[in-house]
Write a protein that binds this DNA or RNA. Structure first.
Length: 440
RNA sequence: CGGAGUGUGGCUCAGCCUGGUAGAGCACCUCGUUCGGGACGAGGGGGUCGUAGGUUCAAAUCCUAUCACUCCGACCA
């Protein structure tokens, strides 16, 4: 993409409402724009990041055996009356009336709808287990939205729902998501720590929040420091291997880790002092096992082996990709701007033309652009005639993994600069060498 | 929802107290000089001062209402 043809509204000043670094940087880098309190547009650069995050989530959900579908944002109040949550959910739910005076709502979550869908499509225990997920916009009318997309009212959520015949099966389904989440966050460059969590309005008795440590996190968390080094499950893990998944679950829950709501100071005190981590954290995922809380009242049952009707054991599993985008920035930035992990960066390479209009420089940049594109790299080519200093600052702000700097001076010496954003390391190379380093 | 505060060109803000018909920096446009880590000069465009009402010869400024947004507390991906 040529910058001269792109839509990238960079801000030089920091908008005053932005309190935390991810919000500031997302606004300054032209990723998002506030439309209303807690409601944001994702501008082209931000949307690319969001899509990459979504794709990693999708790949790991699929790997674990979950099946993607798409449910609507608008739901009928009747569905929620069946579970009894229409009245329970309170003002956080955005209620809407259509032209026929029918009561509708903008979905804050989808347990009711998926249960309704599932029961209409499955009659036998032989059709189990299943896990269905979608990635869809949600709306929760937060009393106080803040921190940009970190706590917004409209937000994107991947929500998965598992259906099993019995508790043992449901626990395996839970463990699948547990392992998939560890892999998902690791791929995004985040070390997420599962912590025992309160189940809140979703209900149930087994629940973990996946927390990443960040000084601007909203919750206070306590954990064993070894969690910071734990490896995620490997790519080839067998999700049908109950023992292997239980082992992963046991490992990751063997040490102390809790949010402030679940914190047990006494238990934490037994952890060696040097191993204790008290920090602030950002919740990037939350998984629940809640048994028959929805299947029972909504009549989601199948015929079991003995011919009797059995209500399904369910769980739900959420990740907020829009929040994750902000969380990644909280975890990965410096004074100059964002430092994108390779896996979620909006483009792979920033190509900086230091003298647009100069024939030799333009030619070298064109060559690099084409070679990189052909090699499957995404390139944001700054072909504008801005002052070079501004290009460097902009490149650091938007934080692409690599910066390839091409100017007449370097070309004359046969050397151009390749900079790694994360380390600041710069190499002087010939154009071909630089392209080789980038895999082109 | 309780408490506090803010609305003035795209962004950051001054002006308001003490009414006299709107400013600065950045950004943007033109020309020129520049060009390797947020350039310089000259010229230029852009604002119903959140909205509605009121007071007044006169309102960004005073009064009333209203809307929006932000921050501090209880909820959540």
């Amino acid at each position: 993409m040529r910058l001269s043809r792109y839509f990238l509204p960079i801000l030089r000043d920091t908008p005053k409402e932005a309190e935390i670094v991810s919000h500031r940087l997302m606004l300054r880098a032209g990723m998002i724009r506030q439309e209303s309190s807690g409601i944001y547009s994702w501008l082209p650069l931000g949307y690319r990041v969001l899509q990459r995050i979504e794709q990693i989530i999708r790949e790991e959900q699929d790997r674990s055996g979950a099946i993607e579908l798409k449910m609507p944002t608008i739901q009928s109040a009747d569905l929620w009356r069946q579970s009894g949550r229409y009245d329970d959910y309170g003002k956080e739910m955005l209620r809407i009336t259509d032209r026929h005076e029918r009561e509708m709502l903008y979905g804050p979550t989808n347990e009711e709808m998926i249960t309704d869908i599932f029961k209409s499509g499955v009659q036998s225990y032989k059709d189990l287990p299943r896990n269905l997920y979608h990635i869809q916009w949600k709306f929760r009318d937060e009393v106080r939205p803040r921190f940009g997309v970190m706590r917004s009212r409209e937000f994107l959520m991947k929500d998965a729902y598992s259906f099993d015949i019995d508790e043992a099966g449901a626990r395996h389904s839970y463990n699948k998501m547990f392992a998939a989440y560890l892999r998902t966050f690791k791929r995004m460059g985040l070390q997420a720590i599962p912590m025992r969590a309160d189940t809140g309005p979703i209900g149930g008795d087994l629940s973990h929040e996946f927390i990443i440590l960040a000084s601007t996190g909203e919750s206070e968390v306590f954990c064993h420091k070894n969690f910071l080094e734990f490896p995620a499950p490997p790519e080839n893990i067998d999700f049908d291997d109950r023992v292997a998944l239980q082992t992963i679950f046991d490992q990751w829950t063997s040490l102390y880790a809790a949010t402030s709501e679940m914190h047990d100071a006494g238990a934490f005190g037994k952890v060696a002092e040097a191993d204790r981590v008290s920090a602030r954290g950002i919740e990037v995922g939350h998984i629940f096992y809640f048994g028959t809380k929805y299947s029972e009242p909504m009549g989601c049952r199948v015929t079991g082996p003995d011919g009797n009707m059995i209500p399904l054991e369910m769980g739900s599993y959420g990740i907020g990709p829009s929040r994750v985008a902000a969380a990644i920035i909280e975890a990965s930035h410096d004074d100059n701007g964002i430092i994108w992990p390779d896996s979620v960066a909006p483009f792979d390479v920033a190509l900086l033309n230091l003298k647009a209009g100069d024939a030799a420089t333009d030619a070298a940049c064109d060559k690099a652009y084409q070679a990189l594109t052909k090699a499957g790299k995404t390139v944001l080519y700054d072909d504008t005639n801005e002052r070079p200093g501004g290009k460097f600052a902009t490149a650091d702000l938007i934080g692409l993994p690599w910066q390839l700097v091409v100017g007449p001076k370097g070309l004359a010496e046969g050397k151009i600069e390749l900079k790694r954003r994360a380390t600041g390391e710069k190499q002087s190379l010939s154009l071909d060498e630089a392209l080789g380093k980038l895999g082109a």
